[in-house]
């Protein structure tokens, strides 16, 4: 079965990515799986204590965002599901892609068209994932 894995968050830019992934799933047929990679390690750079349970809260927030994406997909008649992972983005993405048997990974274009991020996504992350898993990655 054709499975598209779409890495997403909330926000206007993410909604565009979700809509594009929904369209592509409709065109190709199959199932759409949304993924949110939660990473609360950025909080460590602050002097305030790391709140116990903060990782859990971030994951809950991710699940909520993906539930909304799922509702959006189902409204468009696309079968969908979601997974929430923790830690390094690339590692989590690769693991999830293998697990769900993804045939395509969809990533969102940076909201502010940040060229450095875009370059990283297109020229470093996508080829690295392709090399490791053989799965095509596109930035929409």
């Amino acid at each position: 079965m054709n499975v598209i894995l779409c890495a997403t968050r909330g926000g206007e830019a993410s909604i565009k990515t979700q809509e594009r992934a929904i369209e592509m799933t409709k065109e190709r047929g199959g199932r759409l799986v949304f993924i949110f990679v939660s990473d609360a390690r950025f909080l460590d750079k602050y002097s305030a204590p790391r709140v116990p349970g903060m990782d859990e809260e971030m994951k809950n927030m991710g699940e909520f965002l993906l539930l909304m994406a799922k509702e959006r997909a189902e409204k468009a008649g696309v079968e969908s599901d979601y997974v929430v992972r923790e830690g390094d983005f690339k590692t989590a993405l690769v693991e999830a892609a293998k697990e769900v048997g993804a045939s395509l990974i969809v990533l969102g274009r940076p909201a502010d068209d940040n060229l450095t991020t875009l370059e990283y996504l297109e020229q470093q992350l996508s080829p690295a994932i392709k090399a490791e898993t053989g799965i095509e990655t596109i930035v929409v």
Binding site: G10, L43, A48, P49, V51, G53, M54, E57, M58, N60, M61, F64, L65, M68
Partner: peptide, 18 residues
């Protein structure tokens, strides 16, 4: 107040988005 906010932010975000 830092911890209070940290714990309230995710659910506040969810409410706002909803």
């Amino acid at each position: 107040n830092v911890t209070t906010m940290l714990l309230m932010v995710p659910i506040t975000l969810e409410i706002a988005i909803a």
